[in-house]
Design a binder for these strands. Structure first.
Lengths: 352, 352
DNA sequence: CTGAAAGCGCTTACAG
DNA sequence: CTGAAAGCGCTTACAG
């Protein structure tokens, strides 16, 4: 008779434990622990003996036990509230790629940023399961209450593309302002001076940065943005349709429209089509993000490629590198990591 | 001086433990455990005392400790190898929705189904972290070696849309054959008799079922499928372009093309456009899946809506319901759950 | 209805 | 270079 969960013979179907390995190798469990964690101060022969025993028994350290006894859980949490499937899967892929290099796993925690109990949910989660780090994307990364809850729980976190509170935590980002600036410069270089703009969701920091880059490029060319050509959108296809309708109903029409993201650009294109406005013959369209759909619509959309997966990888890297580092100070003010974007020219823009 | 990880005063910033609650409530930790797990046999007053103490201390049972001591980890794993972002996020959403109802969390484990060490990776993962259940999607759910590894680890699993080995595990699915059958019937009802077909990736069971439904509907109307109108695709946009080119290069052209998924349908549409073939005037197109892009391309694609999120919810439900159930027998041969699909008519089909 | 003891599988802090 | 002891925060199996 053994414990209720009968593990049977070590290595035979059931899982073997550190005790099984220690016994087989003829050492203490502490030595097995040292070997498994690649700690120094183990005689080479001893190390090998242990490794052989571990291999023989198919031994894998139990993550849960390591977590409870030690100071690491080997779990990273990804918090988000974003309906863009491509963005989410790219983020996940980037984080997992880096996490796996170090034996970490990813817990995904989609959150409703408008839920009244958002903070208590996060606090509760963090108390229930000790995460070694959390990655935050917009708009959660700009919510002070969220940051506060995570800080209160003492969990390290990295923010992706934050807007508010720079310096409050390590961050990864691309230069959204510069990207919008360059896109606008591109339109101007193509001969456009009458350019409309569809703003993104006001709760997303990127929306403001993109607008800022747009205005900066315009003014640099002595063009004043015309308020009637700047429409508010919410990053959704539908909001793009509506913004497009409103824009194309103005007395005079711009020759180009810069949408703060691709989905809205698709909406603008649909509204143009309904109004009998041809793209790019009558009006040029540009987007932002380079989602897969940008190659699906016709004409294909000129846009900015966000390095989402690379941002995610970098965010995980900050978390895990610090983890491995000295216990001491949290690395001398880790500077934000800035990743490059790319302007992708396709068929939705033509010379004015 | 306390332990190295100084938790400070219970409830003040740090996390409180079952001991803190027991002390404050004046009971044993076993009683606290009973209350937290909603077990019977606790006097109402005792229960209340404990609950008050727990609330006061912001007590949350440590998931890792529960896992190690008990038989549950409160962790579900989702294994997949699928590039379709919408499918993945829908799956995740469905699983998480159900999992949260019971305090469970989701670990995502994308896998390369062609990796030579796939099985050892899965075995290793399962030994490292005791999951309470695993959900498998195509093509992983049809790989015998994968099923074997999970069974060897003694972890319950549910398969989504499996093709092979029916009855080997609980499954959730929609009737893919019937869906393809109905789509084909729809085309026939619209006057089409010359119908082409783009097959899906041969490693995905659905590919064969969809083709089978197509052929069945055709034969039922005394139409024999023409081999030169059946092209092999691989579920990707590019493979759709290629299949479309090949199809439209045949001496005679079908009046409709049924693609085994939407992305290939988009590719077929692109190849048609390049060949100067109008949709739906010259040829009707249908897809399968109803990905967001189906509403982005023009004309919008008539397709089959898969209940992905509902399938995921159902899969998690099977896992968690069994979890809660009797320890004894694994529920008398849980029947597969069959979920309804929907045929979505849009603009890519017209009467022949 | 309640609790004391043992133990889950590891790591920590220490001693040698 | 190695190990014995204690403990992480819970649940299990019992006893009363």
């Amino acid at each position: 008779m053994r414990t209720p969960k009968d593990r049977g013979v070590p290595g035979a179907g059931g899982t073997s434990t550190i005790n099984d390995v220690a016994r087989l190798a003829g050492v203490s469990i502490k030595t097995v622990s040292r070997v498994m964690n690649n700690e120094p101060n183990v005689r080479p022969e001893t190390r090998q003996k242990v490794q052989e025993a571990a291999t023989l028994l198919h031994y894998r350290p139990n993550l849960l036990a390591r977590s409870l006894a030690g100071s690491r859980s080997f779990l990273i949490g990804l918090f988000y509230d974003n309906p863009n499937a491509a963005y989410i899967t790219d983020m996940q892929r980037g984080v997992i790629t880096r996490a796996r290099e170090q034996g970490y796993h990813l817990l995904i925690e989609p959150q409703d940023s408008h839920a009244p109990d958002l903070v208590s949910k996060i606090s509760s989660l963090l108390a229930t399961i000790r995460l070694d780090g959390v990655i935050l994307t917009p708009p959660l990364c700009d919510m002070a209450v969220v940051l506060h809850a995570i800080e209160a729980a003492g969990v390290p976190y990295v923010r992706v593309s934050p807007f508010l509170n720079p310096g409050r935590s390590p961050c990864v980002r691309m230069d959204e302002t510069q990207a919008a600036y360059e896109m606008t410069r591109h339109l101007i270089a193509m001969g456009h001076r009458d350019i409309g703009f569809i703003r993104g969701h006001p709760e997303h920091g990127g929306s403001h940065q993109r607008y800022e880059g747009f205005v900066r490029a315009l003014r640099e060319s002595q063009i004043e943005p015309r308020p009637e050509w700047v429409k508010q959108g919410y990053f959704s296809y539908e909001s793009g349709v509506e913004a497009g309708r409103s824009l194309f109903a103005e007395k005079t029409r711009p020759t180009a429209v810069f949408s703060s993201n691709d989905y809205m650009a698709f909406g603008v294109m649909a509204s143009a089509q309904q109004a009998g406005i041809r793209i790019p013959e009558d009006v040029s369209i540009t987007g932002f993000d380079d989602v897969p759909g940008a190659m699906l619509v016709w004409p294909h959309v000129t846009t900015i490629r966000q390095p989402v997966e690379a941002l995610a990888y970098a965010a995980a890297d900050i978390l895990l590198t610090r983890q491995e580092g000295e216990e001491g100070e949290p690395a001398p003010q880790a500077p934000d990591r800035l990743l490059p974007f790319a302007l992708i020219e396709r068929q939705s823009v033509r010379r004015a």
